[in-house]
Simulated scan of single mutants.
Amino acid sequence: MNPRRKKRLTLFLSIAVLIGGAVSLMLYALTDSIDLFYTPSEIIEGKDGRKPQVGQRLRIGGMVVPGSVSRDSETLAVTFDLIDVGPKVSVQYTGILPDLFREGQGIVATGTLLDSRTIKAQEVLAKHDEEYMPPELAEKMKGIKHVKPDNAGN
């Protein structure tokens, strides 16, 4: 092989290895911040044949089951159930809930899976428009009717 071509090949392979290493390190660094989105049914039954592992960070979206909100009178701890079209999943949260949070409302929570049916949430987001929901959840909930909350002030 020509020495000039050998030098170019070595340079090209070195650059390819460095770029591959940099991309690998970036992907490894991002694995801690990736939160997969699940619905309650997908947590129980699995998503694409795989169930989330206990301790895994995830996002869950669903409707708060009417009558399931339980507040601790001495702390900010709240427990409530979420449902989509299948089984219920329990969510535990400590903190101040959003003003729009209420029973029958759609929410998205980010947290850690404690066991097969319980999530310890670090963040709870309530949707602001009753017509909007994440596309994944909207697809799952087509045709399902939910109880809308009462208008207490009206």
Rank of each mutant, 00 (worst) to 15 (best):
M1N: 12
P3S: 12
R4I: 07
R5T: 03
K7A: 15
R8W: 06
R8Y: 11
R8Q: 11
F12E: 11
L13T: 10
S14R: 09
S14M: 09
I15L: 15
V17A: 15
L18H: 08
L18M: 14
L18I: 08
G20W: 10
G21M: 11
A22L: 14
V23G: 03
V23H: 10
S24L: 14
L25I: 13
Y28C: 07
A29E: 12
L30I: 09
D32L: 12
I34R: 11
D35N: 13
L36Y: 10
F37V: 12
Y38P: 05
Y38H: 12
T39W: 07
T39Q: 01
S41L: 03
S41M: 04
E42H: 07
I43W: 09
I43D: 08
I43N: 06
I44Q: 01
I44H: 00
I44S: 02
E45A: 15
E45D: 08
G46N: 01
K47S: 06
K47G: 05
D48P: 02
D48F: 08
K51E: 09
P52A: 12
Q53W: 02
Q53A: 12
V54M: 00
V54C: 00
V54R: 03
G55W: 04
G55K: 01
G55T: 03
G55S: 05
G55I: 05
L58A: 02
G61P: 01
G61R: 01
G62E: 04
M63W: 12
M63S: 12
M63N: 10
S68H: 08
V69I: 15
V69D: 05
V69M: 06
S70W: 04
D72A: 02
D72H: 05
D72K: 10
D72F: 09
D72Q: 13
E74Y: 11
L76N: 14
L76I: 00
A77L: 10
V78L: 11
V78S: 13
V78H: 04
F80Q: 00
I83P: 05
D84W: 05
G86H: 06
V91W: 04
Q92H: 07
T94M: 07
T94C: 04
T94L: 06
G95E: 06
I96G: 08
L97T: 02
P98F: 09
P98H: 05
F101R: 10
G104Y: 04
G104S: 12
G104R: 14
Q105C: 07
Q105V: 09
I107F: 01
V108R: 01
V108G: 00
V108Q: 08
V108M: 07
A109S: 14
A109L: 00
T110D: 05
G111C: 01
G111A: 03
T112Q: 06
T112W: 05
T112P: 01
L114H: 00
L114R: 13
D115Q: 07
D115R: 02
D115I: 12
D115F: 07
S116H: 15
S116T: 14
S116M: 04
T118F: 01
A121T: 01
Q122R: 01
V124M: 02
L125N: 14
A126M: 09
A126L: 07
K127S: 05
K127A: 06
H128G: 11
H128F: 04
H128D: 12
D129F: 14
E131M: 06
K140T: 15
G143N: 10
G143Y: 09
I144K: 06
I144V: 14
I144T: 06
V147W: 06
P149W: 10
P149A: 15
D150R: 13
G153V: 15
N154Q: 14
